[in-house]
């Protein structure tokens, strides 16, 4: 356990390292600002602390130090390679950081405004005002296909399951492996 003296300075260092990571995950491009420009590293850091306490911050600082963040003096390819190393060597930590960064980015009011301004209706807190949607129009939107059937209680009949062989023919490949 680090004592408070040893942890002096970890905040600014971690913040800088995290900002560098965030900018690799969410680089600026065109209208889209980079993650660090928006300060995405700050809510990410706060959520790490909320999730795992100070120990999690220490672990993160160590993990980022291992990949050389904040990447000072490194070219783009080297920075990307460093982040890929984190992704490969610590996949769970990387997933958590990536998801936290993405969430913080897209809840930022500047990004919400940008998305909405590009023509995709989007609100910071949609529940407050909702979205304008035209009411259901019975005249034009009621299905007319006439398809569908159901079986009345009195008409339920026994089906022949003898060919199913549920006990003997076992499906081993199922789901996405099917």
């Amino acid at each position: 356990m680090s004592d408070s003296n040893n942890r002096t300075g970890i905040g600014p260092q971690l913040s800088a390292a995290l900002a560098a990571l965030v900018d690799e995950l969410l680089p600026g491009k065109g209208d889209w600002p980079s993650g660090a420009t928006l300060g995405v590293q700050h809510p990410v850091m706060e959520r790490i602390a909320m999730h795992g306490g100070e120990a999690a911050l220490d672990e993160l600082a160590a993990a980022l130090a291992r990949i050389g963040a904040p990447f000072e003096g490194l070219e783009v390819d080297a920075r990307v390679a460093a982040v890929r190393r984190l992704e490969a060597e610590e996949p769970a930590r990387f997933r958590w950081l990536r998801n936290a960064a993405y969430q913080a980015y897209y809840e930022n009011p500047a990004i919400v405004t940008l998305i909405d301004g590009r023509g995709t209706p989007y609100r910071l807190r949609p529940h407050v005002r909702g979205y304008e949607l035209p009411a259901f129009d019975p005249a034009t939107q009621t299905p007319t296909h006439g398809r569908g059937h159901w079986i009345r209680t009195a008409d339920v009949r026994s089906v022949d399951t003898s060919g199913l062989n549920l006990e003997t023919e076992i499906t081993t490949k199922w789901g996405l492996q099917r």
Partner: peptide, 21 residues
């Protein structure tokens, strides 16, 4: 938008880096 990028429903996540936006 955040959930879309972090794997809503199918687990498909947005790539990080140059292709994200």
């Amino acid at each position: 938008a955040g959930e879309m990028t972090t794997g809503w429903m199918s687990g498909t996540t947005a790539p990080w880096g140059a292709g994200h936006h």
